[in-house]
Amino acid sequence: MSGPEDTDLPGGWEAAAAEYVLGLLPEDELRAFESQLVQDQALQQDVEAWEAYFAAFTDDIEEVAPPPQILRRTEAQLFGKPRAPLWQQILPYFLGAVAAAAIAWMAMFGGLLQSSDEPDLWADLETPSRGLVMLAHYAPDSQTFMVRRDAGDYPADRSFEIWLIADPESPPVSIGLVDREQLTEIPVSDEIAAQLPGATVAISEEPLGGSPTGVATGPVLSLGQLEPREEL
């Protein structure tokens, strides 16, 4: 016989049989023991006897699950290494669920799903005597008020100011100045945004930098009512 008897450990194969049943054999010796076991009938009887005796340890315990060393040995043979704890196994699924919930939340509250609720609003603002053609456009998605100047000159020493006239009784409220570039984009407050549907917008000509008093001081160039449109 070779194996455990080659070492100075006491007991030889017979002690190894008990270690085997206890799950104490080191990995390398385990393989040597099992190849000996298949051809050594006396060793098989030893293993069976140890299993029967050690089973008495669990007689008092109402337990169906195998003792841990059997489970570990079986899993080592099946999977090659100890299994990861349960939380590590389910972690990827958990993270996926969290990501999905986060995306759903952002879609709900980030405005992605709002677009169909509130229509865009448009108003033509034209001043034929000055050759000015402007288009006002409010986009609820981004809560941005835009004015596109399609034709006409912007006087270098004057400013065009945009006014919101929510109803005939209310004084006009300034939304901002028309930019000297072709496209003006002005983010508006919640308060103004709420008044925009159906409101009138006006463009007035003001001193450079806009009205100094907070109310329109110069001539009104054009008026238009903000309304949804079928197409641009």
Binding site: A56, F57, T58, P67, P68
Partner: peptide, 24 residues
């Protein structure tokens, strides 16, 4: 038989056998 013979072992060594089997 097992518990009788375990009682003949030094207590700390019997405990090792028991722990190896029951606790892996």
């Amino acid at each position: 038989a097992l518990f009788g013979c375990m009682a003949e072992l030094p207590p700390e060594r019997a405990e090792m056998v028991r722990r190896a089997y029951l606790e892996g």
